[in-house]
Nucleic acid binder design. Structure first.
Lengths: 107, 107
DNA sequence: ACAAAATTTAAGCATTCACTTAACTATTTG
DNA sequence: CAAATAGTTAAGTGAATGCTTAAATTTTGT
């Protein structure tokens, strides 16, 4: 019962550009699906499915409000991503420093 | 000619746990494929394919060295991820602050 | 009670994905 | 040169993905 549900993975959830855009939109506050879906050229069920995936990843939560469902951003799982990627920050800093030095020395 | 090749997307590239593990491994320096593949219970072609995807995303580069190919980490594209996720940091900070306050007030 | 509105569920479909095994291409070494 | 080593390319497969349309479901307004 209840497989680990690989699709609950945060990295997988943010891999899709539409889902990232949905999260971006939710930063301005909780919203009903129709409003959330407005800028996307995609059917409502498609958006609904994306929202479920985000829900499974713990990135959004929903709350019933009459006949609409308000979706709200929960950014906490993104910390996983932040933590993982932060381990590379010193590396690209090195890279960019090297580039800077190169440009200075070869004007 | 030459579509944007959606698979060149960094978010897509790091969505797979094996590929993230490969990148993690490459932080300790450039390595030939066989060495890189060692901890994974997966055929060599599978690793080779993952490496190509990482290559297309610009996250690794390769260099021939005799009969082996050395793969090297290029973390720069990860800045995209870092930048995107950083826009959420203030949000989860709020969330965690709220949790802290709650725990203080309900001991 | 009835129709409209907001959203989800269901079912289907084409594409992409992550993998496999088998065959191929270098390169080195005996 | 032949055998071994390192890796890729090719072809195939099952499962997952992202979407669609059509049919529920639930709530509201008349």
């Amino acid at each position: 019962m209840s497989r680990p549900t690989a699709s609950a993975d945060v990295f997988q959830a943010i891999a899709d550009p539409t889902r990232r855009a949905i999260l971006d939109r939710l930063r301005s506050g909780e919203q009903p699906v129709k409003q959330l879906a407005e800028p996307f050229e995609m059917s409502l069920p498609a958006i609904s499915q994306h929202l479920q995936i985000l829900c499974n990843a713990g990135l959004v939560s929903q709350q019933k409000a009459g006949r609409q469902r308000l979706y709200r951003l929960n950014p906490v799982p993104l910390q996983q991503v932040s933590q993982w990627v932060s381990r590379y920050e010193s590396f690209w800093q090195q890279k960019l420093d090297a580039l800077g030095t190169y440009l200075e020395e070869n004007p």
